[in-house]
Nucleic acid binder design. Structure first.
Length: 270
DNA sequence: ACCACAACCTGGCCGC
DNA sequence: TGCGGCCAGGTTGTGG
């Protein structure tokens, strides 16, 4: 489940291989992954364009094209991007192949086909609903507090709301709440200033730690060079139900919050 | 405005 | 061994 650290890792590995290259051909094997425009239009707009930059907003990867437009990719649950120096056939889960002008290929694999590819001349129409970037210095405690202060939903649900802050998913929401010592069912509007400050810092800390580890690798996430992230080894609570809390030893509990499995320490997160 | 839940998909796992 | 059913979780859409 690629979240911000995984998408940023992918961006860093893919960009040097792709930026500056011309996209000679786009092969779409599963048209359902193309959103907003028809697969034919997508192919027309992308084929022949040159990639001049690769950026990220939240969990979205943005490829800037010349002469016009932006390709935006969201990997959702199981999407993977791989770069191959020379042509390979792909497998039954390979749904899109880009052939570049140096003979290399970018392959998109997605077992569950939830991921989406966009072409747009107005990226804000796709990513404009996103809240601030948590690793940007412009994301302040004050802004975070303002986004939480009026909300009655559980803090776990608010962290997963991409309009509150962009890029957190189930893993890093649970990890950040643990580091901040906040119970996932606390209502947003009941957090004290000090707790908001701790959570703001915890979010940045776990995202940066994960980024330095190359993200978390489960069966469904791989880096473009086929390497693996290692942050899953350092998860404190996520998918560690019954294991001892790394701080106090109390068994980690699992509950459902807003329909999502949620892991926490009942002693450290009251 | 708020919330719950289904839908999108498939593979892995569990129990029988 | 095989089969049915459930679960995983990001996002959108629907309905209460």
């Amino acid at each position: 489940m690629p979240e911000l650290p995984e998408v940023e890792t992918i961006r860093r590995e893919l960009a040097p291989r792709v930026v500056g290259r011309r996209i000679n051909e786009v092969e779409i094997r599963w048209p359902g992954i193309i959103a907003r425009v028809s697969p034919d239009i997508f192919r027309q707009r992308v084929q022949g364009a040159r990639v001049t930059g690769m950026g990220r907003r939240g969990k979205y990867l943005l490829w800037t094209l010349e002469p016009e437009g932006t390709v935006i990719v969201h990997l959702r649950m199981t999407g993977q991007l791989h770069h191959h120096p020379s042509p390979v056939p792909g497998d039954k889960h390979t749904h899109l192949i880009m052939r570049l002008d140096d003979g290399s290929e970018v392959h998109y694999r997605d077992v569950r086909k939830f991921g989406r590819w966009y072409w747009t001349s107005a990226p804000e129409e796709v990513v404009g609903h996103l809240g601030p970037e948590p690793l940007s210095p412009e994301w302040t405690v004050e802004e975070f507090a303002a986004a939480l202060g009026r909300r009655r939903r559980p803090i776990k649900a608010l962290l997963l709301d991409q309009g509150v802050v962009a890029g957190l998913g189930n893993i890093y929401a649970d990890e950040a709440l643990f580091v901040a010592g906040i119970h996932p069912l606390r209502r947003g509007d009941t957090l004290h200033v000090e707790e908001v400050r701790r959570l703001h810092e915890a979010i940045r800390q776990v995202l940066l730690e994960a980024l330095h580890a190359g993200g978390s690798t489960f069966s469904t996430y791989q880096r473009p060079d086929m390497g693996e992230g290692t942050y899953q080894r350092r998860h404190r609570v996520f998918r560690r139900t019954g294991h001892p809390c790394p701080v106090c030893g109390t068994p980690i509990e699992r509950i459902r919050v807003s329909g999502r499995s949620t892991h926490f320490c009942p002693h450290c997160q009251r």
